[in-house]
């Protein structure tokens, strides 16, 4: 299962969600294969994406939010699982792109990557729903898992175990973080006004 497979499955199933991505290959996959959802790439700082998405979700309980998270970002700050569980946002769902390594940084393995169960940690921390799609699962299983995530009570977290793939730096891109923030807010307003969600 490639990371772009996950992005495509999410895009197909969740057109009505505001998307937030962490740094690294999860954001890269959405840029390459994502939908037309309003999206905010909250890289950097690393490790802050779950709490950032939580703040967004609490600020707009009338909207549904989907965080596309890397396992490296999540592993940097596992305490965020408890922060989210404690706040119990009913409109925040998370897909963790789990390849067990720091993809963009050079492919170094995460701590305990060969034995940690990220979905299990979230479940033990009090998340309302968690699930895992194993590496190599057929496309139908991925689609079903994404569907289950979106149908589940939130906060909900799906770990999608993806293949290791090269993720070279692609240059700075056209927009600074500041410009991206402005563009996101324009896009969100347009999306809401036009009722395209």
């Amino acid at each position: 299962m490639k990371r772009n497979d996950v992005a495509q499955a999410v895009a197909a199933a969740a057109p009505d969600y505001v998307v937030i991505t962490s740094l690294g290959s999860a954001g890269r996959a959405w840029r390459e294969c994502g939908g037309t959802n309003p999206v905010y790439h909250c890289s950097d700082p690393m490790g802050a994406a779950p709490a950032f998405a939580l703040g967004a979700a609490l600020a707009r309980p009338d909207l549904e939010f989907l965080l596309l998270e890397g396992d490296g970002d999540l592993t940097m700050n596992l305490g965020a699982l408890l922060t989210v569980a404690g706040a119990a946002p009913g409109n925040l769902r998370v897909v963790v792109f789990a390849n067990g390594r720091y993809e963009t940084g050079g492919g170094q393995p995460l701590g305990a990557a060969d034995r940690a169960d990220l979905a299990g940690l979230a479940a033990a921390g009090g998340w309302a729903w968690t699930g895992t799609v194993r590496r190599g699962a057929p496309a139908a299983d991925l689609a079903a898992a994404v569907g289950a995530l979106l149908a589940a009570p939130a906060p909900a977290l799906l770990v999608a175990c993806v293949d290791a793939e090269p993720a070279p730096y692609g240059g700075p891109g056209p927009h600074s973080g500041d410009e991206a923030r402005t563009l996101f807010r324009h896009r969100l307003r347009e999306w809401l006004e036009k009722g395209t969600r």
């Binding site: 937030i20 905010y40 909250c42 700082p45 802050a48 994406a49 779950p50 709490a51 950032f52 998405a53 939580l54 703040g55 967004a56 979700a57 609490l58 600020a59 922060t83 923030r181 996101f184 807010r185």
Partner: peptide, 8 residues
């Protein structure tokens, strides 16, 4: 980060 997401 919570505050930043809310501010966004």
């Amino acid at each position: 980060a919570v505050c930043a997401g809310a501010s966004l």
